[in-house]
Design a protein around this nucleic acid. Sequence first.
DNA 1: GCAAAAGTGTTTCCTTTACACCCATGT
DNA 2: ACATGGGTGTAAAGGAAACACTTTTGC
Lengths: 224, 224
Amino acid sequence: MTVPRVAVTVDLVVLTVREQRLCALVWRRDRPPYAGCWSLPGGFIQLDEDLPVAASRLMAERAGLRDVRIHLEQLATYGYPDRDPRQRVVSVAYLGLAPDLPASSRAQVLWRAVDDLVEREEAAFDHRRILRDGIERARAKLEYTSLAAAFCPPEFTVAELRRVYEIVWGTSLDPRNFHRKVTGADRFLIPTGRTTTRDGGRPARLYRRGDAEQLRPPMLRPRT
Amino acid sequence: MTVPRVAVTVDLVVLTVREQRLCALVWRRDRPPYAGCWSLPGGFIQLDEDLPVAASRLMAERAGLRDVRIHLEQLATYGYPDRDPRQRVVSVAYLGLAPDLPASSRAQVLWRAVDDLVEREEAAFDHRRILRDGIERARAKLEYTSLAAAFCPPEFTVAELRRVYEIVWGTSLDPRNFHRKVTGADRFLIPTGRTTTRDGGRPARLYRRGDAEQLRPPMLRPRT
DNA sequence: GCAAAAGTGTTTCCTTTACACCCATGT
DNA sequence: ACATGGGTGTAAAGGAAACACTTTTGC
């Protein structure tokens, strides 16, 4: 029996919060197929390369995010036969959550607000759907994990963390209840002892990420 | 640039509850590699075949579960280079939840308790890890979705549904609070009007699955 | 002093938990 | 009658939501 072989790619949904919006890293395509559309950064895996290794390599090569600790997790795999018009490609998507960093120096790679990408701009391949799945995964994970801190710089205030939740979810949260909840969660936030007044008002304590993965009790999204 | 191509398989983690235990459908290997070990049912995708279609096809061909409505969802993709000693294989795992049905007529395919598979018996390839991931996904999904009913026959009682939770989670649940919770959840259970005494005692109302996907509020696992 | 944002206390509501108790059948 | 499991009522505990209030800075 002869086994069919297909090309396997890793595509990256890299999200960040910048300028009060949830943004994704995209590639501006200047040649066919889908010239003029946006696509997710990604590329073919190498024959001796594990999938997470490929994702990290492409994060550096294609997204320009080298030597940065970014949360990376597998999202899903997309493989319907005609998703790439050139050949059969099975794509393993990874989700990355990053603080607000300058992306690649290449002009082709840029941060774009996800609302615009999903609702207004033309996507290449099935990347609109992959992006949507990544956004939904990120939104859901903020509820019961401590991943929101992955969007923050190394030191951050409770209010900055709250703004992450508000921007990713598109809701507003009570600052007082939020404060109590996150500071009460075990190993979520480690106080550094320092404070900042960069947001105005009374000085806010600075924290860094704790080693908790789960957030219990969970931070539930307000239901409409 | 020449693109490396790899073989892509779909592997199935098919779970059911039978004889008071959580069981998985496995293949008893009689030839190398890994002769004598168990492996998950699966096979190579065809060149013109979407991944969920391949999963359904293999569910019929390799698992013997034809014409049965089984919940099927993508689990994860496994692709480290030497996971198959013969060639590079990337495997997309699917998770299936089935009621207690006779599996294939082939003697090679059988239901086995997952505890034995994970803890005692030798697994082929990385199938132990894939099975573990599937079990954990199933356990987590019972909390906030209505998937537990996928383990039940078309008509079932609240107590039978509760036993599903207890067996999958390995915990015991208060029958009275469980009853209130699942009968109160919107569109989870549809009363058929019939009753049964198959479990003894007072007749229990029979229900069938409603069309709810989410379970709100969630049914939380008791914490140790 | 005043504005602004951080952080605490308190009350109300709702969910969860634990368990007493009644209900409807088979034997 | 009584054993067995199905199903309801209820009170106590704990978390969530709403919001009054105090604290500490910049200007």
